[in-house]
């Protein structure tokens, strides 16, 4: 079997170790003898390529870089990305990249940046003096049918452990929330919810990178991608995740959550 991973603007949108998500997907393919190619989706890439990849990965960018991306991700490219996600291609958008998928992002200074409008949500910066939302974050995935599918893979409640670091606050309208915050700020520090889920696209402020300590999400993305590609049910072989489990335990213990969540 083989898979291609489309990586959105690797030079521009990879500020917070988000390359880690690409590495996690790549290695878990290699460890299972699945052929994997990483396809950069950047300024030089023709729009067709955006529709030819099996998984889409997007990370965070600094302001200036995000602007360059938004100038490029227009017209045919924007349409191709929309088509891909609407056709159930799995995607993982972390850190700043979910803002791209919403209607707009309103920075603290300067002009509103239009997004793709794919996810019915908006993001706003509350002003330069407002503190950033920074810290370790834990949330439980509640989106349907994602939560059940993840639980089947993981054999336990799909609890995500990550790190958030965002100035903007995101407000969802009709799009489904990804999960419920157990500790941390989440989308806006107000409604106790985190991220968004649309078709097979996961959008979250949580990085760390997201996939390293939450291998069940990695495997879910791979499973979905292979099922789309080969049009049959796929069961991935089990991998040794003892390091990820130890990392999760260490963080939950530090956050005083190990008693509340008896997780893997």
């Amino acid at each position: 079997m083989e898979l291609s991973i489309g990586w959105l603007y690797p030079n521009l949108m990879s500020t917070y170790g988000d390359r880690g998500n690409v590495i996690c997907l790549q290695r878990r393919c290699q460890w299972r003898d699945i052929q994997v190619t990483i396809v950069p989706l950047d300024r030089e890439t023709p729009s067709e390529t955006f529709q030819q990849v099996d998984i889409i990965v997007g990370g965070g960018a600094q302001d200036r870089q995000q602007e360059i991306v938004m100038r490029d991700l227009k017209g045919e490219k924007a349409f191709a990305l929309q088509q891909t996600l609407n056709n159930d291609t799995p995607g993982v958008f972390t850190c700043g990249s979910p803002q791209l998928l919403g209607h707009y992002y309103e920075p603290a200074l300067g002009q509103k940046i239009e997004g793709l409008g794919l996810l019915d949500m908006v993001s706003k910066h509350p002003g330069i003096d407002a503190p950033r939302c920074i810290g370790n974050v834990v949330f439980e995935i509640t989106a349907k049918p994602l939560a059940t599918e993840l639980e089947t893979i993981w054999g336990d409640r799909p609890i995500v452990i990550g790190f958030e670091n965002h100035g903007g606050r995101t407000y969802l309208k009709t799009v489904q929330h990804l999960g419920k915050v157990i500790t941390g700020y989440g989308n806006n520090g107000e409604d106790g919810m985190e991220g968004a889920f649309y078709h097979n696209a996961i959008a979250t402020y949580s990085h760390g990178p997201l996939l390293a300590k939450n291998p069940f999400i990695t495997d879910w993305l791979l499973k979905k991608a292979l099922e789309n590609k080969y049009q049959k049910e796929i069961t991935l072989s089990k991998l040794d995740d003892s390091l990820a489990i130890a990392a999760r335990k260490a963080m939950l213990q530090r956050l005083d959550l190990s008693k509340i969540i008896a997780t893997n």
Binding site: R27, A212, K213, L239, D240, A244, A247, A250
Partner: peptide
Amino acid sequence: DRTYDMALRLKYSESLL
């Protein structure tokens, strides 16, 4: 403090298990 984060990074540096 973040022993296992570093351990994961190193484990994921290899294409062979």
